[in-house]
Deep mutational scan, measured.
Amino acid sequence: MTEYKLVVVGAGGVGKSALTIQLIQNHFVDEYDPTIEDSYRKQVVIDGETCLLDILDTAGQEEYSAMRDQYMRTGEGFLCVFAINNTKSFEDIHHYREQIKRVKDSEDVPMVLVGNKCDLPSRTVDTKQAQDLARSYGIPFIETSAKTRQGVDDAFYTLVREIRKHKEKMSKDGKKKKKKSKTKCVIM
């Protein structure tokens, strides 16, 4: 069974824990209790493949930012979460993405942009803004509501699919490099 290491990042209060708990335990946590770091595991079937999701729910508070490099190193894919009623959390996505790329030393890291709290009427981040940002990053965008469960499975499952595509691409690139290195030079 394939294991996928997913990391949920975003500013404090955007609903990272609520999304994760909704996926794992099928219930909505409405009281806000700032996370330092929590880890969850769940076995699911995605596109006919049974897999184990190892999900790291991270601290959004700035005082825990020193811990970010460590979990970013171990993560295979990242859910970059903002709240649709919090423009600052949307603007912060850029910083999370840049930090992930720096730590992973790669421009090509599996990510999904997630606009959470889409059940709320007080939207300050337009869907088109988020779609445009995701398009500019070359990553999928999904709106979710941890409260109603809308888009929750889709967000995590899409990230797994992005990781699969990335692994497939990397193995193809690896095979191309191996083929090239088999060419021999004969000096007579």
Rank of each mutant, 00 (worst) to 15 (best):
F28Y: 10
Y157A: 12
G12P: 05
A83I: 03
G75N: 03
P34R: 14
R41L: 00
L53M: 05
G151M: 06
R41K: 01
D154I: 06
D30G: 06
R135N: 11
D154F: 08
C80Y: 04
I36M: 11
G10C: 10
G77A: 09
F82D: 09
N116L: 15
V9S: 06
K167H: 10
Y157I: 11
N116P: 00
R102Q: 12
Y96C: 08
I163E: 01
R97L: 15
V45E: 11
C118M: 12
K117F: 14
T2I: 04
E3I: 02
S122C: 10
Y137F: 07
Y4R: 15
H94P: 05
R164E: 11
T124D: 13
V45C: 09
D105S: 13
G60V: 15
F78R: 00
K165I: 12
G151E: 04
L23G: 14
V9K: 01
D54A: 00
K176W: 03
K104Q: 13
R149S: 09
V45H: 07
V45D: 11
H95K: 12
Q129R: 07
E91G: 03
G60F: 13
S106C: 09
G151K: 00
V9T: 13
Q150M: 04
Y32P: 07
Y32K: 00
V186A: 09
Y40E: 00
R41H: 00
A155T: 11
M111K: 02
K104V: 08
C118W: 08
T2D: 13
V125I: 10
K179M: 05
R164S: 07
N26E: 12
K177W: 04
G15Q: 01
D119A: 15
C51H: 11
I21P: 00
S39N: 10
A11D: 13
F28Q: 01
R149Y: 11
Q22I: 01
S39I: 02
K178C: 06
M67H: 05
D69N: 11
K178A: 05
E91S: 14
D173L: 11
G10R: 00
T2K: 06
V125K: 09
G15L: 00
V8F: 02
T144L: 12
G174W: 02
E107Y: 14
P110R: 03
Q25R: 06
S181W: 05
L6A: 03
I187G: 12
C51T: 06
T183N: 03
V7D: 01
L56K: 02
T183C: 08
K165C: 04
Y157Q: 10
L133R: 06
N86E: 14
Q150A: 11
D126W: 06
K180W: 11
G115V: 08
Y96T: 04
V152N: 08
Q129F: 14
L133V: 06
A134W: 04
K5R: 13
H166P: 06
G77W: 00
Y157M: 09
L19F: 14
C118G: 10
L23Y: 06
K101W: 09
S65E: 06
E49L: 03
D105Q: 12
Q22K: 11
K178P: 13
D108G: 07
D153N: 08
D154P: 05
K147V: 03
F82L: 09
E168G: 12
P110N: 09
E76C: 15
E107F: 13
E76Y: 14
C51D: 06
D33C: 01
C51N: 06
F156C: 14
E63W: 01
V114A: 03
F28V: 02
E62W: 04
R135Q: 07
I100F: 05
G13I: 01
V160P: 07
I139P: 09
T2V: 04
D132I: 08
D108M: 11
D119M: 14
D153M: 09
M111I: 11
T35L: 15
V8E: 02
G10D: 01
V7T: 02
H95P: 02
V114M: 12
Y40L: 05
Y32G: 02
K16E: 04
Q43D: 03
D153E: 08
K184E: 10
T148R: 09
Q61L: 03
H27C: 11
Y96G: 01
D119S: 15
H95A: 15
Q150E: 07
V109S: 08
D173N: 14
T74G: 12
T35P: 04
D132F: 08
F156G: 05
H166L: 08
V8H: 01
